[in-house]
Structure formats: structure tokens, C-alpha cells
Amino acid sequence: MSTVIVVFASMSGNTEEMADAITAGIRAAGIEPVVKEVMDANASELEQYDGIVLGAYTWGDGELPDEFLDFYEEMNGIHLEGRKIAVFGSADSSYPMFGAAVDILTEKLQERGAIKVLEGLKIELNPSADEREECIQYGKSFVESLA
């Protein structure tokens, strides 16, 4: 059976809501993921999993949140060849770069050899009921991609 880790950063709770729904989808598809806030995780842990799902809100004009910076730098030293990945995050369209943290993390994971199996999921601020369902489906689809 495949193993999955979900690592996320959330300031206002929006990205955490997304993480909760995606995790519910992963569970509904039959996998019990390891779920961690980024401050409680080390990038080297990612090497232990078949599936990696990262979540981050976009800070400022298109940057990673501060709490993700050390983890991001640590990713330079890991090897993720063959691991399947997906990235999600809450975003704010009032800024010029909508959800740039999702793109930054996806690019870094792919640099490290990982395989993107789903497009990045970006949701404006907090997820609506329909968007929460979209997150659940995202988690289920991620598990299907591991088969």
C-alpha cells in the first residue's frame, strides 16, 4: 500500500481547511496519511513517502510564507525521484501573483525528481462548501494517481 504525507502552512486557517478536506479525501480513498504543519516537519521526511502533498498560502506579492522557508531550503538536499506530488493553497486575487506559493513548491518538488500528478489547487481565501468538496475530490484523485 502507498504511503502519503501532507505538509502545510496556514496563517488564517484557510489552507488548513483545505488540508483537512484533502486529507478526508485521501482517507476516503483508503490511505491514512501522515499530516503535519510545516513547522513540525523536515524536508528529509518526504523521501520516506510514495505520495507527497504540500499546502501553503501565498504571502505578499507572491512569496512562500516565512514558516515554509527553512523547509524549502532543506528540499535542496533531498531526492524525490519517482514520488508523486500535488500542491495546494489558499490565495488572494487582490495581489498580482495569484497562488504563487503553489507554483514555487511544485517547481521545487519537480526539480528534486518528483512527478506532478495533479495541477496545483488554488482557492480564493477560505473554501466554500463546493470548494471543500473539490478539495475532498482532489485528495481522492491523488490516491488514484498512486495506483
Rank of each mutant, 00 (worst) to 15 (best):
M97L: 06
A24N: 08
G120A: 00
L118F: 03
G99N: 01
A129S: 10
G13V: 13
A56D: 07
A91K: 07
I78N: 04
V53C: 09
E67F: 10
S12Q: 14
I31V: 14
Y138S: 01
V7H: 13
M18K: 04
A28E: 15
G55R: 11
A114R: 03
M18C: 07
L125N: 09
L118K: 01
V102F: 07
E67H: 12
S10T: 15
L69C: 11
A29C: 07
G120D: 00
A114P: 08
E16S: 11
G120I: 00
F68E: 14
I78W: 03
A19Y: 07
G113Y: 04
D70W: 07
A19N: 08
Y72Q: 11
I136A: 02
I26G: 03
G120F: 02
L64C: 10
R83D: 13
A9H: 12
E131I: 08
S90I: 09
V87G: 13
K84W: 09
H79W: 13
E119T: 00
F68P: 12
G139E: 06
D130R: 03
K108I: 01
V35H: 05
A41N: 04
A29Y: 02
D50L: 06
R132A: 05
T3N: 11
D130L: 02
E81H: 14
A29K: 07
E37N: 13
G113L: 03
G82P: 08
F8K: 09
E47Q: 09
E16G: 09
R83H: 15
D40G: 03
I136H: 01
T106W: 00
L125T: 10
G113A: 06
T3Y: 05
G60C: 08
A129D: 14
E16Q: 14
T58C: 02
F71K: 08
E17A: 14
G55Q: 12
M11V: 14
I85C: 15
V35L: 09
E74K: 09
S141C: 03
S94C: 14
E47Y: 00
I115E: 15
L69H: 12
V102C: 12
R112K: 12
G99L: 00
A129C: 01
F68D: 13
T58F: 03
Y95D: 06
K84I: 09
M39W: 04
M18P: 06
T23K: 14
E81S: 15
E134A: 10
E67Y: 10
E107Y: 06
E131M: 11
I123E: 02
D40T: 05
G82Q: 10
G13F: 13
C135W: 02
E37D: 12
Y49R: 09
A43I: 05
I85F: 10
S90H: 04
G120K: 03
E73P: 05
Y57T: 10
E17Y: 05
Q110P: 00
D20N: 15
D103R: 01
A29V: 05
T23E: 13
V6A: 13
Y138V: 01
D20L: 13
A114Q: 04
F98A: 02
E81A: 15
A100H: 02
G62Y: 03
L125A: 10
E107P: 02
